[in-house]
């Protein structure tokens, strides 16, 4: 019986037969859905209601703006950062697969690429680097917005945009730190199938951060 197997390894039996940590991360992700939906709702409610510029999708001319300003959102740059975050999710599932199959040498086949696929250290670091790259893009975007006169206090767009994307960026930062911690553990003692659950939990968090960005990219950046 499932719970017997769990108890045999020092875990108390659970009524659901599921590990509490995984139930907890899904419950946490459910609550995070509500948090981000509230932030997205606020952005959408105030969308198009800024009295002064800069505006996200249209140019701003005097008297609304002191000087002529172009539309502030840089879609090409954000598209690249979106692609980077999507690829980080791919790297994360490959990190989890490498950890889960650590006790099955050759599970990925043969050749140099199979060697790469079997390296959990490589994929954990790749995910962290891609996450940090996304944060770099966000830092560039925030800095350029401030230089163009948009701060969190400028108008309703600035307030809701910086709050929403700032919260998301904070979550990505936590995810990168979490990944680097896992990488350090992997380097120090190695991660194996017995650690699959802790990597799975971090992967769920990371993918959630990715799906939130999928929604933000469409609702904030693409829909005018």
């Amino acid at each position: 019986m499932a719970t017997t197997a769990v108890a045999g390894h020092g875990h108390p039996p659970t009524t659901t037969g599921l590990d509490h940590r995984k139930v907890a991360i899904w419950a946490f992700i459910g609550s995070e859905c509500m948090l981000f939906t509230s932030l997205i709702s606020t952005y959408l409610i105030y969308k198009g209601r800024s009295v002064t510029g800069p505006f996200p999708h249209k140019a701003c001319s005097p008297p609304q703006c002191p000087t002529e300003l172009k539309a502030i959102l840089d879609i090409p740059v954000t598209s690249i950062s979106t692609f980077v975050l999507l690829m980080s999710s791919l790297a994360m599932v490959l990190a989890l697969a490498a950890v889960e199959n650590k006790d099955k040498p050759g599970w990925a086949g043969t050749g140099w690429w199979a060697g790469v696929l079997e390296s959990s250290k490589f994929w954990l670091m790749a995910t962290a680097i891609l996450g940090a790259t996304f944060l770099g893009f966000q830092a560039y975007e925030f800095t350029s917005f401030v230089h163009e006169g948009l701060t969190i206090r400028t108008n309703l767009f600035g307030s809701t945009f910086f709050t929403l994307t700032g919260f998301h960026g904070a979550h990505v930062t936590v995810g990168v730190l979490w990944l680097l911690t896992l990488y350090a553990i992997d380097v120090r003692r190695g991660l194996g199938p017995k650690d699959a659950l802790i990597v799975d939990i971090s992967a769920l968090y990371w993918h959630f951060v990715d799906v939130v960005w999928i929604a933000i990219f469409t609702l904030v950046y693409l829909i005018r």
Partner: peptide, 30 residues
């Protein structure tokens, strides 16, 4: 770490780990 982390087999018995997609499927998804 066997006291704090259940084994892969335990995960399966808890209904947590089923057959996950393969590398090729992940590649297509990406």
């Amino acid at each position: 770490h066997s006291h704090s982390e259940p084994s892969h087999a335990d995960h399966a018995s808890m209904g947590e780990v089923h057959e996950h997609p393969t590398w090729k499927q992940y590649k297509w998804v990406a």
